[in-house]
Design a protein around this nucleic acid. Sequence first.
DNA 1: AACCAACCTATACTTCGGTTTAGGGCCGTG
DNA 2: CACGGCCCTAAACCGAAGTATAGGTTGGTT
Lengths: 213, 213
Amino acid sequence: MNLSASATDQSRVFVVDDDASIRASLDSLLRSVGHKVETYGSALEFLQHQRQDDAACLVLDVRLPGISGLDFQAQLQALNIDLPIIFMTGHGDIPMTVRAMKAGAVDFLSKPFRDQDMLDAVAAAIERDRKRRREADAVADLRGLHAALTPREREVMVHVTAGLMNKQIAHLMGLSEITVKIHRGNMMRKMEAGSVADLVRMAEALGVEGPQA
Amino acid sequence: MNLSASATDQSRVFVVDDDASIRASLDSLLRSVGHKVETYGSALEFLQHQRQDDAACLVLDVRLPGISGLDFQAQLQALNIDLPIIFMTGHGDIPMTVRAMKAGAVDFLSKPFRDQDMLDAVAAAIERDRKRRREADAVADLRGLHAALTPREREVMVHVTAGLMNKQIAHLMGLSEITVKIHRGNMMRKMEAGSVADLVRMAEALGVEGPQA
DNA sequence: AACCAACCTATACTTCGGTTTAGGGCCGTG
DNA sequence: CACGGCCCTAAACCGAAGTATAGGTTGGTT
């Protein structure tokens, strides 16, 4: 389903800052350690460009033309764009920092910052994205399998992962036991689950379990 | 094993600040909304007192006599005291805030702060601790059951949660299948697992699984 | 009308899981 | 030394799971 090794092993850093000289210096700094870099002067500009399928992160000035970096962070979440963010600020305050960190920012750097601090933050952010990607890919594959189930198969899956016997499932669903066995067998095959133990883990990753005991 | 309903439903707030007037005003504020409050003038003083079995949190000035609040946070982690922390600061900076938040602080408030901000932060912190406690209690119970297993039973448990058949387990362990069945039956009874599905979830909570496929 | 996917059922059979009963051995504590 | 806990095995049995074969019904599509 997802045999492609996530396109590349590249790391891509998006820099959004209205100050061209900052953009240039960050571009050079980040390239020097092997990152691909794309720089933008505004949030809108960033949004209008395509994003590749790389592990990536976003380096953001909190003060952007038109929109605050914090609001932009919220907007990205609403758009379901889940990119680790590193904030930079010239004159940030503590409430701002707390809000950004609570909302999941990787780091919050005061300008001027040491190059190494930025590089460390970017490395941590990329690593976080890489991990999120791996997990998201795995879950996406599972969703594909799960989507191919018929309604009855899905229903049986829930009951199996709840630890019920075929007999009990049959009773709950108003079916004969043999029918449950058929659905169950088809479901296990479609989900590519080699055992109930496998299936339980898949169900947890998918969040398709009945309320826990 | 852990039938006691976690002692109380009380919420307890520990306030550590070297300024007595701050302690007094926080004490009054927090009591007014129903929290139990204990105040201390230093980190050491706090450590020397017993902690009850309540859902609790810690309100901490970053600047304490003898030790920085940040270092104290690290020290508590090292001591395995996992208490949600709310920092207060008179003249904090951004790196300090970032470090505290990265280390898991619930909030970081600049003095002077609005009463409501403190109350909100404390409520969030207590709720976080309550949740952590519930989970820790559940895992502690499981650990108790798991500790009562014999080495062989533990070994069988790992293989069962890996989805192996008795036959395969027997082969791996150099046993006859019947012996595996005995260990397995004893293990399921001791773990109070009604099904393999249950057992898998327990094993995940315990972290006693073989490396995932 | 023909088709197909999903659904349901039954018979028959195999394999797997699990328990009971009934042994055997090793080792450390009382 | 005797007892108990842990370990191993066997025969016999039962119930649960899983598969194959062989049907049947709907309901929507071509």
